[in-house]
């Protein structure tokens, strides 16, 4: 879609060809410049080295953390919380969103409450979650479930509401069985927006998980960063920052790849 808009406003044309939205060599220019500026700033010691370590020092710290096995342990902990919580939240959100769009009753009962709850920043719910669930594993997972659920429920609700009415008339004219209506109409129709919703929900889940680990945890990538801060090892904090970004980016790319491959009918 964005390609169409770019073509329409005359952007992104090189010798008459439209450039597609893929990761290309030029995409690496801005991160490399950022790294160079970072290295240069640390080299000149514009900021105290104790506050901002150089990229090479970060790499050293990273290797150190890998060698000790600490990093893997933290990562595994965080990712398992993420996968567990996200799966439950996204799946429940998907069902709830579709149901709320299809059933007038469910919509009447839950839609206003849902719209109100989703306006509350998840970070504001953390104290309540801690009071209710304590600071154990269940708390972090509940935070992720909540984030994934709300984002996916909203996406699938809006998507299902947006299925063009004329298609349902076709289903009516051919008396399609209920199961066929779901399999051949509702699910394929909502797939593109729902996949986007799943992707956005993932980003929210990942950031809120790291944030809650920063606040209360005994393990995980967020806790590793918190520990680094407490020990004034800001290099460890920066390892966490870079890793959090890299993991989020990688999984986002995986989602996009999935979107492109699951939707062969999309007009490219």
């Amino acid at each position: 879609m964005s390609i169409g808009i770019r073509a329409a406003i005359g952007l992104n044309r090189v010798a008459g060809k439209v450039i597609y939205n893929r990761l290309r060599l030029v995409s690496f220019i801005s991160p490399i410049i950022l790294l160079l500026v970072w290295a240069w700033v640390t080299h000149l010691q514009l900021i105290s080295p104790q506050l901002l370590a150089s990229p090479l020092q970060i790499l050293d710290s990273f290797q150190e953390l890998v060698a000790s096995g600490d990093l893997q342990e933290h990562l595994l902990k965080s990712l398992s919380r993420l996968v567990f919580g996200y799966s439950i939240g996204a799946f429940a959100g998907l069902l709830f969103g579709i149901l709320m769009a299809l059933s007038k009753n469910v919509e009447d009962y839950f839609h206003p409450l849902f719209q109100a709850v989703r306006q509350v920043p998840i970070i504001a719910l953390i104290p309540i979650f801690i009071l209710l669930l304590g600071i154990d594993e269940i708390f972090k997972i509940a935070i992720v479930i909540n984030a994934a659920f709300l984002a996916v429920a909203l996406a699938s609700y809006e998507a299902t509401k947006g299925v063009p009415k004329p298609y349902f008339e076709v289903a009516q004219a051919y008396q399609l069985p209920t199961l066929t209506v779901y399999r051949k109409l509702v699910i394929p129709a909502i797939l593109p927006p729902v996949l986007t919703g799943l992707r956005i929900a993932f980003a929210r889940s990942w950031t809120i998980l790291v944030a809650s680990e920063l606040l209360v945890a005994d393990s995980g990538i967020g806790q590793m960063m918190q520990m680094g801060r407490d020990m004034f090892r800001l290099d460890i904090v920066l390892v966490g920052v870079v890793l959090t970004g890299a993991i989020g980016f990688t999984i986002d790319r995986l989602f996009k790849w999935g979107e492109a491959n699951l939707i062969p009918w999309r007009v490219a």
């Binding site: 004329p166 298609y167 008339e169 076709v170 051919y174 069985p177 109409l185 394929p188 939707i263 009918w265």
Partner: peptide
Amino acid sequence: IVFQEHRLFPWLTVEANILLAFAS
């Protein structure tokens, strides 16, 4: 019935769209 717009399902091929008529 045939409508003004074709109302084919964009995610189904020509063949699958016609096959769908047999669903019930």
